[in-house]
Design a protein around this nucleic acid. Sequence first.
RNA 1: UGGGGCGUCGCCAAGCGGUAAGGCACCAGAUUUUGAUUCUGGCAUUCGUAGGUUCGAUCCCUACCGCCCCAGCCA
Length: 550
Amino acid sequence: MNQEPTSNFIRTIINDDLASGKRAQVITRFPPEPNGYLHIGHAKSICLNFGLAAEYEGRCNLRFDDTNPTKEEDEYVEAIKQDVAWLGFDWGKEPLFASDYFAQLYQWALKLISKGKAYVDSQNAEEMRIKRGTLTQAGTDSPYRERSATENLELFEKMKNGEFPDGTHILRAKIDMAAPNMNLRDPAMYRILHANHHRTGDKWCIYPMYDFAHGQEDSIEGVTHSICTLEFEDHRPLYEWFLRELEIFSPQQIEFARLNLSYTVMSKRKLLQLVNEKHVEGWDDPRMPTVAGMRRRGYPAAAIRLFCERIGVGRNASWIDLSVLEDCVREQLNESAFRRQAVLNPLKLTITNYPPDQVEELDAPNHPQQPEQGSRLLPFCNELWVERDDFMEEPPKKFFRLGPGREVRLRNGYIIKCDEIIKDAGGEVVELKCTADLDTLGKNPVGRKVKGIIHWVSARHAVTVPVRVYDRLFDQENPDKAENYLAALNPESLQLSEALAEPSLLTAKGGETFQFERVGYFSVDIKDSQQGKPVFNRVVTLRDAWAKMQ
RNA sequence: UGGGGCGUCGCCAAGCGGUAAGGCACCAGAUUUUGAUUCUGGCAUUCGUAGGUUCGAUCCCUACCGCCCCAGCCA
């Protein structure tokens, strides 16, 4: 249970920093931009940042990086807070916002201008792009690069006062247009954006760029280890340049490889498109790789945490198979889910030697491995529904289920033997006539061994419940590699169905998850279920060695 | 082909000059009223390739090969 976490390069850095005295504590932060819902990739970052803070008894801030008012909304702020909390993490007091630091950031911009380290450029975006050069050619200086500090201060103030339309001027750091690292070719610090900000409203019409904001936000908060993904590696020299020029506390940026999951997409842009174009029902569609989607699907938060711990942290471009996530879900649910019986694809079965007017209540444990969890009663009579897949007219010898003349145990019930097969005019099997060995309830027969066990429900007592059978959203391993990722969508990712379930399932409450024995885990949909009318989502199937043999 | 990274078992991932952790998957057995779970055992003479330094290299050096990221007034 409480085994030592495996060492990773970040823990090594932290241990060294603590040992050398470079840092006295560990302060991290999770800095989402509120422009979409959190996905499993963010969950990795959340587990990492909050996990490390907890491990070293430090602190992890939840800070919204809301520097671009054109993309950010309060709806996302609320959703993100809910997701982080649901994942089991606590950011303390109130969450923080980059926008809380706008005034300070503005002052710092003034300082750089005064030092001659920043200037207002009046080229348009297109001109700037051309003069930035290419990967192999140096850029050329802007004609406005040598404006005096006084003039820059004046112009920047006018920018702030709203005297210029969007895109006419921009504040740039004065670094080196010939730098081999493109990020150092006089990067933009502030742009004019006459847009309403979700928190500051119309107070500002200039907004800081990520590069001019993130490091300082970390600095203000005293973050010791600023953990981000690998694509920001090239930004680190700039991150450090601003902190150095501003002469303020310098956190250490550490980059790790982002998560790639097979059969899914992770970019917010694509997830947004799936939502907007209604390829899914919303951000919380149970097929989405979002935290909200996984929650609604029935994935336990603990499974996601286990997954994040299991995949580790490194700098290799890693690619994790979806099945690893699903295994973590099974591992958790196997422990926590109560067992129930339900038939998804029914075949009628009649027990000919059982009195037609008799009904028995069979005791069945909620969790066979946890007897302390109690049991429930299963109504049993001579008419049952069993799973179609559990019968074969001409079964191979290794098929431990029903077939002509074969014996099988009814889960939590009697051993029965298949005597007769009834077919319809089309030759399809519509009913099985069986006899039960009435002396096998709770005990094995003497002299013979019955290996097969199948699940069932009483036909006269079963309740019909809607079931949504989910499968992977994409049917290609890497949808991003497809010509168009939308073409890789799995047309069968959602199959509406019904299950014939034991009566106790009728009172299941939203959010509860059960194992339908021998079939899989199913959770009661939070949104679409009503009192007494549960709608089930298939969370994940059970491992199926038989299916693998086929 | 400018700059920055990365290459250790099928997938992740430790290792930081002293002779290849661990997890998942997989295979083989055992237990089992879920072909589930659980349990036991097996699973890299080898660390992208080729040289070099060293008593000794996955760890140091050199060259090569492969993959990822960067030319938003996005983050």
